[in-house]
């Protein structure tokens, strides 16, 4: 049986892991390659690395880090941050990344999704969607690391990117991110039911029950967390044992 995936996310700045709390207040949580190896041994199903300060110069450094990660770990990983062209993706995939995640570039230029899917296959194209709810707007899509509200409503946008060839949706609720109060179950479920590709729930994980809820209530295919794992507040073996006892299929 296909298992639900547990995905630690490593935000990378200048070759180090960081984690923004509500996209602010960044803290340093270690060396990416060491953390990656440790997570692979702990039973993480996949890893995500987001280059959060990608400029042209930094992107080259990031590609070297991607190569270093691929050399040392034997589970799949996705990389994202600052990707705006097919050529950027080619460099990262050739360095050993399994999937790429695009966010603002997909909003600026939706054609990029189609170009990437055609060139590399949908299976390696994850579209990351930062979403925020307000009473006035409902769930809207935000660009540029959550700083700019777009015209897109979240469910419509995810449908559109899947039609263009996205193979996975990484859905981050900005309302929940950093709160440890649980994933945004309503929008995650709406997106999961609206699209035929896997959906990764992100933002808000604080307890093991939150992961169970993401899978059982929101029908997410995978769940992602960062600081919760980085600061060892929750161990992946304990989490998987809990999920298994809840009747959720996990690789354990």
């Amino acid at each position: 049986m296909l298992t639900k995936r547990i995905i630690p996310c490593l935000d990378i700045k200048n070759g180090r892991t960081v984690k923004g709390v509500r996209f602010e207040n960044i803290r340093d949580a270690g060396d990416p390659v060491e953390l990656a190896k440790w997570y692979a041994e702990q039973g993480a199903d996949e890893l995500v690395f987001l280059d959060i300060t990608a400029t042209n110069e930094e992107r080259k450094t990031f590609a070297e880090l991607v190569r270093d990660i691929a050399r040392h770990i034997d589970i799949p990983f996705t990389v994202g941050g600052g990707i705006s062209a097919v050529a950027d993706v080619e460099v990262l995939l050739m360095a050993g990344a399994d999937k790429v995640s695009i966010n603002s570039a997909a909003i600026r230029n939706p054609q990029l999704i189609e170009d990437l899917a055609k060139r590399f296959g949908s299976q390696c194209v994850t579209v990351a969607v930062d979403t925020k709810y307000t009473e006035v707007t409902g769930w809207k899509v935000y660009a540029r690391a959550g700083t700019v509200e777009t015209e897109h409503t979240t469910v419509d946008w995810t449908r559109q990117v899947v039609d263009l060839g996205a193979g996975e949706i990484l859905l981050t609720s900005m309302n929940n991110d950093g709160t440890k109060a649980g994933f945004a179950l309503d929008i995650t479920r709406s997106v999961s039911e609206a699209v035929a590709v896997p959906v990764v729930a992100s933002g808000g994980a604080g307890t093991m029950q939150h992961f169970a809820d993401a899978f059982q209530i929101a029908h997410a295919d995978a769940a992602l967390a960062a600081s919760l794992f980085h600061f060892r507040e929750l161990s992946i073996p304990d989490l998987k044992q809990f999920l298994k006892a809840e009747g959720i299929a996990v690789r354990y």
Binding site: L2, E46, Q123, E168, P198
Partner: peptide, 8 residues
């Protein structure tokens, strides 16, 4: 869901 993605 398609792609079939993950550990099976």
């Amino acid at each position: 869901k398609v792609p079939h993605m993950g550990w099976n």
